[in-house]
Computed example of a mutant assay.
Amino acid sequence: MSRAVIHETFGGPEVLELRDVPEPHAGPGEVRVRVTAVGLNPMDWGIAARPEVAARFGITVPAGFGSDFAGVVDEVGAGATGFAVGDRVHGGTLGRAAAEHLVLKAPTEGPEMLFHTPDGVSDEVASTLPVAGLSAAAALAAIDLRSGDTVLIGGAAGGVGVFAVQLAKLAGATVIGTASEGTFEFLRELGAEPVAYGAGLADRVRALAPDGVTAATDLFGTETAETALALGVPPERISTIAAGPTPPGGVRPTGGFDARPDALERIADAIVAGEITVPIAATFPIEKIRDAVALQAGRHVHGKIVITL
């Protein structure tokens, strides 16, 4: 037998159960991964909590949980290519990552992803990369971020934000990040100038950037996008990842599936080079999955939450 997190109904963390399930095995053209770490994302608990969100991703109950993982290949089926037993890997598989064993096509196809994990990147860090890293890369690519820009990043202290801030700095941009005041020092350490979200945001941003903001990305809702429009940023230089398919004012909706094919590899290389750090706010054993999801859902985490197996 193996173990996996399952939910039979939609709801809060209490619906998540760690269950014994039949152990899967790699078939032709497939590999099996022994999972060692699962990185949590807000979309994970959104899917588990709200049937309308799950429906957008084609997920029905009973369902698994989680999207991002890291581990080691421990079975390779006939005809599978690119991976061997013992390879360290990380990747994404929507709605089923929180499990001891995962079986995936090799090479992967559709929304599933599997990459080799470079030496110098731990499994815990690797498990945080796919959704957050690709979403951040896509959000910045959509606005053609470049050296010399002053970019306003909404939700800068969150799981996607920590990547967006550092990628923007690497691109040569000046970064202003919206956050709660309790995260200001954390954001300064990442290289951003923090600003409190909420009423009066536009005035506070003007004070921080008297020469103006040239680009923006909103990683949480629409407040930052609306503020950027009010500050005169052209809509084609504003992106959103969590405002639905029709964000305000003609700004650009995007997501991880829009990222360049080499985006994750570039992020992993930057981590190895010490150019990007991945702050892990907390780790929980899989037996504490409910506690981990409750913390994630509180939206006050500085960085990423990881489940270990």
Rank of each mutant, 00 (worst) to 15 (best):
A4S: 15
H7Y: 11
E8N: 11
E8Q: 14
F10K: 14
G11K: 10
G11E: 14
P13V: 09
E14C: 09
E14L: 08
L16E: 06
V21N: 03
P24F: 05
G27E: 11
P28D: 14
G29F: 03
T36P: 08
G39D: 12
M43Y: 05
I47C: 05
A54W: 04
A54L: 09
A55D: 03
R56F: 07
R56T: 02
F57C: 11
I59L: 09
V61Y: 09
P62I: 07
G66V: 09
A70Y: 05
A78E: 13
G82W: 01
D87L: 09
H90V: 01
H90L: 10
L94W: 09
L94R: 04
G95M: 03
A98P: 10
L104C: 07
A106G: 15
L114A: 12
T117N: 12
V121P: 07
V121A: 08
S127H: 06
V131G: 01
A136V: 01
A138R: 08
A142H: 02
D144I: 05
S147K: 14
G148Y: 02
V151R: 03
G154I: 06
A156R: 03
V160A: 11
V162G: 10
Q166P: 04
Q166I: 07
A168W: 03
L170H: 07
A171D: 12
T178W: 04
A179T: 03
S180Q: 12
G182C: 09
F184P: 03
F184A: 15
F184H: 15
E185P: 01
F186T: 13
L187H: 07
R188T: 13
G191D: 11
A196E: 08
A199R: 06
G200W: 08
A202R: 06
R204A: 12
V205M: 10
A209K: 10
P210F: 01
D211K: 05
T214P: 07
T214N: 01
T222E: 15
T224W: 00
T224Y: 08
T227D: 11
A228I: 00
A230C: 12
L231P: 06
V233C: 09
P235Q: 10
I238A: 13
S239T: 02
T240G: 02
T240D: 03
I241G: 10
A242L: 12
P245G: 13
R252Q: 12
A259W: 02
A259D: 11
A259L: 10
R260G: 12
I267D: 07
I267W: 04
A268C: 10
A273L: 02
G274M: 09
G274H: 00
G274Q: 08
A282C: 13
E287I: 06
I289A: 10
R290G: 08
A292W: 00
V293K: 03
L295D: 14
R299H: 05
H302G: 08
I307Y: 02
